[in-house]
Design a protein around this nucleic acid. Sequence first.
DNA 1: AAACGCTTTACATGTCCATGACAACTGAGT
DNA 2: ACTCAGTTGTCATGGACATGTAAAGCGTTT
Lengths: 230, 230
Amino acid sequence: MSKQRILVAEDDTNIRNGIFALLQGEGYDVCVAKDGEEAIKRYTERKPDLVILDIMMPKKSGYDVCRAIRAKDLQTPLIMLTAKGEEIDKVLGLGLGADDYITKPFSTRELVARVAAVLRRSAVAVEVPAEVKDVFKIGKAEINPKRYEVKTKEGVSSLSDKEMKLLQHFHLHPGEVLTRDVLLNAVWGIDYFGNTRTLDQHVALIRKKLGMSADAIQTVHGVGYRLEDI
Amino acid sequence: MSKQRILVAEDDTNIRNGIFALLQGEGYDVCVAKDGEEAIKRYTERKPDLVILDIMMPKKSGYDVCRAIRAKDLQTPLIMLTAKGEEIDKVLGLGLGADDYITKPFSTRELVARVAAVLRRSAVAVEVPAEVKDVFKIGKAEINPKRYEVKTKEGVSSLSDKEMKLLQHFHLHPGEVLTRDVLLNAVWGIDYFGNTRTLDQHVALIRKKLGMSADAIQTVHGVGYRLEDI
DNA sequence: AAACGCTTTACATGTCCATGACAACTGAGT
DNA sequence: ACTCAGTTGTCATGGACATGTAAAGCGTTT
């Protein structure tokens, strides 16, 4: 799974930097905003998987930002930071659609736990509409995404996470030439700066596991790869 | 299946409207009551599939309404809203027969999750009397869900609650790769805020008790676990 | 206080994957 | 056909990260 992105909107520099460092340390891709307007801007340009909103902010309050986001998008989970418990009634009462809240002051443990829990819930709720969960074929090999396995005449081999994602992406675009950029973005995440040879390496592994059907994944010299559709 | 109907009894207008909008947005057929007497009236005329009751209400308290409903009907699930943790003891202690409770303030996600969970349970209770209650096998070990025991060639060991739930979940999805998220949601509940390593720990314990059949539960690196089906 | 179940921490172990080197290949231009 | 530069296949390896495992902490029950 590629890194999950979190937008943190908080005006207090200390708290903002603290949360930034904390979440980044936990392996998230974090972007920040120091007021409500910036938060909305960052939201539209970065499309984060989770938004953490302070309520008291200059320009636009957390309430306003929440409404603005919910107007466009009902999916993305949202955590509010509040100074006092009472304000929660407002959050709920106004039907703003926040997913969780944390009252200041909070412990780092608490923040990390809630962030993880909210992301976990939303991951399950979405239940991966973009991905394929049913058995499909590549060449004469059968891919089983639920089991992370590929079955060929030669036998059954198990697939690693990246291998599975690559195969799924090929299957979703049969016959199309997929450039390295596209594949790297799809499997490794949108902002992957690594060596492009990594991709070749994984293609090679996949071909090995496909056995006879290896040539179903053709290389298009100077461009990328292509799944043969028969 | 037609829309499921939910009755919400809550005196605070903001919260009532918030819950109303939230649940309606989730696709439920929602009706509301602003005090205890109205709640009982609405209940008898609408026969909802689920009742959400605030405890502190004018005219009749949530306790009273709960008792009144349970006097006629033991089926319909019931969720109590409480302001403080202590009151919960009363709810449970009085044997009122509430199915779940939520302490204020709560997040929208939490409410939605619990509503869905309670409705799912009651649906299951009507259709299928139990989850897995018969003896089943994992590898060469025999699991007895009624006795919370596992029998292997080496002998018999007893299983804890979580261990049993985990094993049942594996047994219900043989061969499938189950992600940590899915397992945590299934066994620990949707609003679990703990460490993901807890799961690993329990898997380790289960493997120990499975003895020789330990490798029936395979780990899929970077994804989760998988029960080998032979 | 002792036992138990669950969680958390800490450290050991293992797996996968990113990376670089080099060989083999491709295609365009001669 | 041959050359050559750029691209891709393949292999080997170190390191980052996920998992295994033991032990300690914590709250509840006996």
